[in-house]
Design a protein around this nucleic acid. Structure first.
Lengths: 223, 223
DNA sequence: AGCAGAGTGTAACATTTGTTACACTTCGAT
DNA sequence: ATCGAAGTGTAACAAATGTTACACTCTGCT
């Protein structure tokens, strides 16, 4: 088990022995689960830290009409819902169910807090994980706040542009990009065509060549 | 100073003496700033924890064309950018500038980590703050992911509906709601009219009376 | 070389939302 | 009670995006 934990972001920088000592200072529990089992329901309070050791879990969002919607997959050795263990609304945002047999390490919240306090490195790691989540979400909101497809394209390109270069290499298909942007694929293609027409860039299969950086920037500048 | 800190979420549950002892265990610094001073630039690394003691600060988002866009205000005794002190990308997402004269308490990251480890309550508080931020952002994304105005209205109403009741009281003007939704005010009014037409609810000045909960739910159910 | 499947360009049309404008209501301050 | 500011209902029109459909290109495989 400690070999697996050593690979987890939470215990990064610690060796197996140190992890062993830390974990054994607090009360913990290992729970096996089998395929399709539901480990937690949306809305349930999160009272334990859970680290996936083996197997695969899935988070299903449940909407108001009762049907499940979006999905997120969790693989070992990741923590489950790290940003929902603390905070004013510490309840599961999703239904947590198993996609295979597996095992999780469970530490109740109070003991987990103790664990964090016992080792500055683990504390730092956990803060990094939660903060990283917040930063990821923050960036996502920035992105979602752009209304038009033009703005999204401009933002995406400028963010992937290495300084000094005029080429952005694409590791996504146009179809994939449309999904990230949350827009229909033909709509994206249309806007790309228009922007090519305006000599803003040349869009090739695996890369985009920026022709007019100025006007690309001005799309995001409202003033 | 400790009187002010006692009111901050970070030191909730501690008395003045305890805060005094904790703070004095680590290295800290108090910095005065004057109106319009820029305390940090967007992109700068966050290396210190900052707690606003007096005055008012503002975060200005800077876009690619150099102009400042959106704003966020910070008032004492709040922490500045709590979710950006740790994490893989710990740099300011905004320009931090002063809206008045004031003072901030500064603790370098390393000492701040030590401070957290020294008192379980403060650690818990900080985890609550950062997690709360993440949860807030998460909910905001859920909301932003609804495309149509109908969906946003349905989600908003269902979330503000107390169980068993059929009335949602509004503490926002229609104009204010439109801003929260990120849509134009007349567009919101139009959709509200349409939904009233369909007997889904009756929208009065300060409250909404749900007439058909079923169909309100079905707006969010894709299946 | 030929084939199948995924990805792409493009068009016509439908739907949704934004914009602008104006008349009407509400509500608090004088 | 009256005034004025803020909020609301509504309409006509513009702009952006979605939907559907189809032909074409690319790529990997046999």
């Amino acid at each position: 088990m400690f070999e697996i934990l050593k690979l987890s972001p939470l215990f990064a920088g610690l060796d197996t022995l140190e992890i062993n000592l830390l974990i054994n200072k607090v009360f913990y529990q290992i729970r096996s689960f089998s395929n399709n089992e539901v480990l937690a329901f949306s809305g349930e309070r999160v009272e334990k830290a859970m680290i996936l050791l083996e197997g695969k879990l899935q988070g299903e969002m449940v909407d108001f009409s009762g049907s499940t919607l979006k999905i997120e997959e969790i693989e070992p050795p990741q923590m489950v819902a790290p940003a929902f263990l603390y905070g004013p609304q510490s309840f599961f945002p999703v239904n947590l169910s198993a996609l295979s047999d597996g095992k999780i390490l469970i530490i109740v919240k109070k003991d987990f807090t103790q664990l964090l306090a016992n080792d500055l490195r683990v504390l730092n790691n956990y803060l990094n994980i939660v903060s990283g989540k917040a930063q990821f979400l923050s960036r996502k909101i920035t992105f979602l706040s752009f209304k038009t497809i033009r703005e999204k394209i401009a933002y995406y390109l400028l963010n992937h542009l290495k300084t000094g270069m005029m080429i952005v290499s694409l590791n996504q298909s146009q179809k994939g990009l449309a999904e990230v942007f949350g827009v229909a694929r033909p709509s994206l293609a249309r806007t790309i065509s228009e922007m090519e027409e305006e000599q803003i860039f040349r869009w090739e299969r695996n890369q985009v060549i920026i022709l007019n950086l100025q006007s690309l920037r001005s799309i995001l500048g409202k003033y």
